[in-house]
Structure formats: C-alpha cells, structure tokens
Write a protein that binds this DNA or RNA. Structure first.
Lengths: 187, 187
DNA sequence: TAAGTCATGTAAAAAGTTACATGATTCT
DNA sequence: AGAATCATGTAACTTTTTACATGACTTA
C-alpha cells in the first residue's frame, strides 16, 4: 500500500464514492496535499479491492450511466486507522520555484522580479480558493472550533487551516523577496 | 530536461563538482527543496553531457581515487538562465502528514496527539538544522541583507529564509493542532 | 585487517504522467 | 447534430526508488 491507497481509503471512509467521484475529490480537497491522475486512481481502486480493503457495487442510474460505488471493508478501515496513527516518512520536499531561486543570481533583476510576481499570482489564487472553501465551510458548520475531534469536518478544517497558513506564509516570503530584488534595482 | 537537470546545473554553475560532491549537495542544501538519489544523479550527469550542457575532466588525486569534475558548458549556463526566468508548473503538493490528518477523526485522541508530537519533533529538528546553517552563513557573509542580487550567496539566503519560515509556520500550525486535540481530551 | 570515506556506476521495480480509447446520457 | 458531463478504463512513457555492485585509499 502506498500513500495514495490511504488517501483513497480516507475519502471512502467518509462516504462511498465512484471512481469518477474520487477523481474529483483527488483534485479538491485531497489534491491540496496529495494528488493522482485518473490512470493511477482506477488501477489503485482495483488493487484495494484485490487486497480486500475496499469493495464495490454497481449502481444503475436513470438519468446517467451506471457507476461502481466503492466503500471500505472493515479490513480497509482498520488498515487506514493503523496507517493514520503511525508516523510516516515524509515525501521529499519539492518546490520548483526554490530550485529557480537558487539560481536567481544568474538572471537580470527585472526578470527575477517578473518571475517572483508570477509565483505570487499563483499563490494568491490558491489562497483565494482556500478562503472561499473556508467561507463555505463556515456557512455549513458554523464555528469550526466547536467541531468534534471525531468528526470528518474537524479533520477537513485542520487541513484547510494548514493550507491557509502555508499560502499566507509563502506570500509573505514572496513579498519579502520581491522587495529585496526591487531594493537593488531602484538606486 | 527535467527539474533535476536544472538543480544540478544550478549547483555546477556555482562551482565545478564531481558526481560524489553533487550527491552531497543534493542532500544539503538542494535536498531542502528538490531531491534525487545516486542512481538518478549519475545518469543525469551523463545526459547533461550528451546534451552538451555539461562537460567533465578527470582529475587524479594523490590521496584519493580520481574523480570526474563536471562544469556547465556555455550552452548549459544559457539553458539554466532561460529555465530560471521562465515560470514553471509547480510540482504537485505532497504532504503525507496532511493525508493522515484528513483521516484523523478515525483514531483515538491520544493517538492523534502522539502523531502530532512526532511530526512536531521532525519539524523542530529541521528548523534547528536551518538555524545552524543561517548561523554559519551569517558568520561567513555578515549581514545577509547587504548581499548583492547577482551573488549565489543572496540566492542561498533567499531559499534558506523560505525554509526557516516554512518550518516556523508548520510548527505554529502543529501547536495549534495539538492544542485543539488536547482541549477535547481534558474536560 | 577491518571499518570508513571517497568515488562511480547499473538493474530492476515501483510510482506517476501523458496520451489514447470508449460509451451513455443530457443539454443546447 | 454537436458539445458537455458522467463514467470507466488502458498503453506507453518518464521519473523515482530500492537494491545491487565494485574499487581506491585512509585510518584505527
């Protein structure tokens, strides 16, 4: 089992889903911290089923094509619980913008500034997306600090909170970087 | 060319290095934002050379085995510059701890707290490592805000700064999470 | 002489991405 | 009739990891 297995089980543990549903849930919200494409998700579902961690039932629909609804088995839930409470080796850190910044001394300041601003736009957009989700969540759940620890809502709120702080921190650093570059251009 | 190609070129652009040197530089400091193993680095160096972006000379040493010293070619430097000033599609976000947190509602609060603390230790250790590097950098370079934009030192400082802020932000969130869990355990 | 570091690679397997492929149903 | 959404997959390729493999030289 790979992290993706548990990402999928984590989604199924909240509610049964079709592969197609999972495709979208892996975009948002799971994609904010773990991602996978269609070509990885469908085979992984088959693997989970072969391993006895998930099962599916075919659900015919009037207005749409039939779908396979997946849910975790008891063994699947147990495996997920066990994995969740075991500290995991972190995935290697990968930030392509920092790879660029590491060689930023090679390029003209104006280019460096433009690059920084492009990155800033990305992160600002991501932050806005997170804030929209928080807004929606607040409308649905009310005061998030009142959520029970054993509710999926609490878990969603905790991950969202990290996303918000991550983007704010990144943006603060980007502003600092842009200022440092600009400061050496003006005089 | 993949991001790793430019990570390696970025190291070579600062000073010629052997594959073995690059192995260690890919651990630290490059590993803080991009990583690769030996089995990827040596073939990648060969690829860079085949593409005319790097070249090597064999350097015999008295006290140690001979080594291949790599440096970027003019074409390699040009390719690096061009890549650096072009906005890159970000690598997918991957945070295994957040995958766990997303399903944290399934496990006992005491386990959740233990997991959070294990994560906190990791990040605290990483922060200490960054702070030690900052200390060393400060001793070598003096006031970092005086560094010139076109010096590798500036670039190193900028990436380190991001690392420091990332770990501080992560730790702040972990404290918040631990508190939220603890608050529901006590009463 | 054994352990440790310096030094360079390859092989095989796994994980992940891009592109291909198909078909039902609904809406315009 | 064509575009859009729902729905499920596979094939080929690239990237990355894990494990294997070897040898020079130094120090205890």
């Amino acid at each position: 089992m790979i992290p993706l297995s548990y990402a999928l089980l984590g989604l199924l543990a909240r509610a049964p889903q079709s592969g197609y549903d999972l495709l979208q849930l892996m975009e948002e919200p799971m994609g904010f911290f773990w991602s996978a494409r269609r070509s990885q998700i469908y085979p992984e579902l088959a693997r989970l089923e072969a391993a006895g961690l998930a099962r599916h039932t075919v659900v015919p629909q009037r207005d749409r094509p039939a779908k396979k609804l997946y849910e975790p088995t008891e063994a699947g839930l147990a495996a997920l619980r066990e994995w969740v409470e075991t500290p995991q080796a972190p995935a290697p850190d990968r930030d392509i913008f920092l790879v660029q910044v590491y060689s930023l001394w090679l390029v003209a300041p104006a280019r460096a500034l433009a690059l920084t601003r492009a990155c800033k736009r990305r992160h600002a957009a991501r932050l806005e997306r997170y804030e929209a989700i928080r807004q929606r969540q607040r409308e649905e759940d009310g005061d998030p600090s009142a959520l029970r620890l054993d509710s999926p809502r609490f878990a969603s709120w905790a991950t969202l909170q990290r996303g918000l702080e991550y983007e704010r921190g990144y943006l603060a650093w980007l502003r600092w970087l842009a200022d440092a570059i600009a400061a050496q251009m003006a005089p």
